[in-house]
Design a protein around this nucleic acid. Sequence first.
DNA 1: AAACGAAAATGTAATAATTACAAGGTTGAA
DNA 2: TTCAACCTTGTAATTATTACATTTTCGTTT
Lengths: 139, 139
Amino acid sequence: MNSTTAYENLIMHEVKPSVQRMAIMDYMTMHFTHPNVDEIYNALSPKFPTLSRTTVYNTLKLFVEHGLVRMLTIDERSVCFDGNTSLHAHFLCKKCGRIYDLPLQNHEDELMGLVVDGNEITEVHQYFKGLCKNCKSIM
Amino acid sequence: MNSTTAYENLIMHEVKPSVQRMAIMDYMTMHFTHPNVDEIYNALSPKFPTLSRTTVYNTLKLFVEHGLVRMLTIDERSVCFDGNTSLHAHFLCKKCGRIYDLPLQNHEDELMGLVVDGNEITEVHQYFKGLCKNCKSIM
DNA sequence: AAACGAAAATGTAATAATTACAAGGTTGAA
DNA sequence: TTCAACCTTGTAATTATTACATTTTCGTTT
């Protein structure tokens, strides 16, 4: 399924590989749940007992800078990360807090690189909030 | 220019007026700079020396619930508030951190209320990031 | 005008997210 | 093997936000 290994992926994006970086990269390409730092840390620390939260922060910052992951600011409580870097929309359920991927509505992708009112767009974010499928069915 | 007073605006949205609430409402309708709690608190505390930060938090939460202001989660550092509740897009400059209003691109407003993949959309957010007019000219 | 009760405001303390930073560990080249 | 650069770690500091108990305000009733 996933043709490129974490190692290759890091190299391709000019990030020097390390045990921790590969583990975090692996996690991000296997869990598209838009985790925050704590979730990533908690998931990995059993397997890497010496892992530091600071390393997770540093690593994700680096990954974002090198385009390996996207940072989402949709959840007011904490920043989330998305291992899927293709342009797509997000839906945050106000009941359960889960974040879902959604296909990009309209043609948002065409706004990338545009200059609007003199401002140069380098990131496009399309966020929706509401009640998700799951929570709707429970009500 | 502004035909409705803060007092009237609160009443219309079924929020019981108070000195603090009117002051914060006034601030929000005169400053469309997308302030966070601290900026609002710092701006008002000289005129209202007993104002508490907690009151600003409580009041803004109430305002959001009653549709008097919008909450923006575009800035990763803190939540911002927008006294302009009409549907519009936002641009965050990655250099200076300022948030600008932009007209809604495409026809995002038409997504309000839609059900996508079973998820019911009650809030639409269109965020852009990049380099603003100002910062571009300085470079 | 005094007493009362509900709602609002306040201040402090607690929690949570994030950053700063100094110290120790790895790695690869000279 | 030594060295320097870079990575990782852990602790402490900072910042944003929430919890909560106390006090104040305000409108109503006596």
